[in-house]
Design a protein around this nucleic acid. Sequence first.
DNA 1: AAGCTTTGTGGTTAATCGCACATCTATGTA
DNA 2: TACATAGATGTGCGATTAACCACAAAGCTT
Lengths: 265, 265
Amino acid sequence: MLDQANKTSRPRLRKAERRERILLELKLYPHVRIAELAERFGVSTETIRRDFDALSKKGLLSRAHGGATVASHQQYPDFDARNQARVEERERIGRRAAALVQPGDSVMVDSGSTTLQMARFLAYEGTQCTVLTNSLPIAMAVGQSAGAQVILCPGDFLPSEAAVVGPDAIEFIDRHHFDRCFIGASGLTPEGVSETVRGFAAIKRAMLRRADRAHLVIDGAKLGTTGMAHVGALDSFASVVTDRRPDPAMQAALNKASVEVLVAA
Amino acid sequence: MLDQANKTSRPRLRKAERRERILLELKLYPHVRIAELAERFGVSTETIRRDFDALSKKGLLSRAHGGATVASHQQYPDFDARNQARVEERERIGRRAAALVQPGDSVMVDSGSTTLQMARFLAYEGTQCTVLTNSLPIAMAVGQSAGAQVILCPGDFLPSEAAVVGPDAIEFIDRHHFDRCFIGASGLTPEGVSETVRGFAAIKRAMLRRADRAHLVIDGAKLGTTGMAHVGALDSFASVVTDRRPDPAMQAALNKASVEVLVAA
DNA sequence: AAGCTTTGTGGTTAATCGCACATCTATGTA
DNA sequence: TACATAGATGTGCGATTAACCACAAAGCTT
């Protein structure tokens, strides 16, 4: 039942075309089943399985038992795999950071996987607060909470991070004033805080400007590393939440800058 | 992992709490696995399975082999169930509407399930365009496309619709000018277009003001119904994309207002 | 026609599902 | 306090389904 009824069905496209359709299907529904697709395309399940393998190797989908799901907020597959092991650490950091928010606070939350964990705990605990963020997953996570009001920044959408950046976002942040901000980062050294993703550093700096108290949330694995863009000096922050005690040099620098160190147990 | 470290772990809450967490997890990741959740919560897989059964009976998630997936794009379960049968119609409308976008166009896309379908086709076809939207799922869908640049509106986040509303959004839209806008609606009658969700009508009106050509995308089942808020008169629109030919009275009104009717086959 | 790629088939292993029944826990009642 | 009860959870089992591997068949390219 090779349906080359129309002239456009050059066989060489068959595989590619089918995979395109799988991706389309995945855009329409979050989850597709192997058996279902096999039947729809009139091929064997083994073929679909091979398609899944190929597509998942490219990071275009993530496999599950019996089917496949859209690639989780499309980060690079390597990035995702590399950091999956640290989810638990991030959860601990996020929980500790969420505990800093007092009922009635207004807080800005930067985009990032660690701050997302924090947002989840904020929603889970139902802390009553107003949250301004430039991250779509964070907005959706905190939005679940009945106690929270969420304000989203405008700007240019960055698909790889599911966040917005750019001048519109900066200007929007600058029009506000909040009690606290929670900032993630790619690196922390005695010289300060740095970021790798293009466009994010400016957002973080804007949040630092417009919040009374700044908290850095950072995976312990990033202590001692540096990203390409400078975010701010240590003394911009009131505290840093991490999962690992900083080494003596780092600790000394933090002490000198009067930064409180909170190690999530 | 959140266990009952704190005193609030009354066992009677355990079940409800766990299910809340499952739903929260599902908001963050499109697919969760039974085994994974069982381990995380420290319960047996059978318990998670029963949770899935209960939640899926309520329409809050859809089951899959080995796990569960978000119920298609967080609407009220009833609403969702009622309209699930019309997904195919929406797909057709969305595809037809997406075809109206010319390469290089700048388009505003209103939030809504039909416009979301349109956004998915836009992404699938890779049409090169700039998209401004107030809907988070639409931003994420169109963001998939390499050809598209996505601009997100600021504003107050509305969790039930995963979109932003409010004065910030309106003002932001008013600062732009786009080639086209695609508007969804709750109702269409000879008197005009109307909307039910509070706050959305003002967004739609702003988009209508700031776009050269307006297209209404609307499920045929909504022809002849009225929402509580007025969006605009028929002559605000250049065309309406639907899946059912309007009745004679409606058709006459559309003709009189010079609205092109596109019925998606 | 040769060679490569893609796809299908068969059989085995592993995982999940769904059910029945036992256990545990919180709560209500005497 | 002791007991009874209902709801929630865990365990064991057979049936179902998917994953995986290797090889054969079919299709396209040259």
